[in-house]
């Protein structure tokens, strides 16, 4: 059967060892629990900066955005800076439409996200 399963890969990027969660595919109500678990794993990395790379996310709905908002709140309380890498125009537009571009630090590539 055709599925829309999303893929999640946690890696460490750059000399500073910033954890990067690379997400691929469609984040919807079916894949949101897996996305939530993968994002939660970032919190346990002990880093002050974490990155969710959404360059290869082709679709995200309110459940996926809800996961990110909940994570942002939790990470802020833990003193962790959550940064998003977004390159697809439709995802950028969705963040703007929902006002979440004001909530998240959004960058266009992982290198910039690691540097700031």
């Amino acid at each position: 059967m055709m599925t829309n399963d999303a893929q999640f890969e946690l890696a460490v990027s750059g000399p500073s060892g910033v954890p990067v969660l690379r997400v691929e595919g469609e984040i919807d109500v079916a894949s949101a629990p897996g996305f939530h678990a993968a994002v939660s794993d970032l919190i346990g990395q002990g880093a002050k900066v974490v990155i969710v790379d959404m360059s290869d996310v082709s679709f995200i709905d309110s459940t996926g955005l809800g996961v990110l908002v909940s994570a942002e709140i939790e990470m802020r309380e833990e003193g962790i800076d959550l940064r998003l890498v977004v390159t697809r125009p439709q995802i950028t537009r969705l963040l703007e439409l929902t006002g979440l571009d004001e909530v998240f630090t959004v960058l266009s590539n992982t290198n910039d996200a690691v540097k700031i």
Binding site: S62, T63, L65, G66, V67, V69, S70, T98
Partner: peptide, 13 residues
């Protein structure tokens, strides 16, 4: 559904 701001986000979208 994921608890939290999902419903409000859905309306906004």
């Amino acid at each position: 559904g994921v608890a939290g701001p999902t419903s409000e986000l859905s309306e906004r979208i």
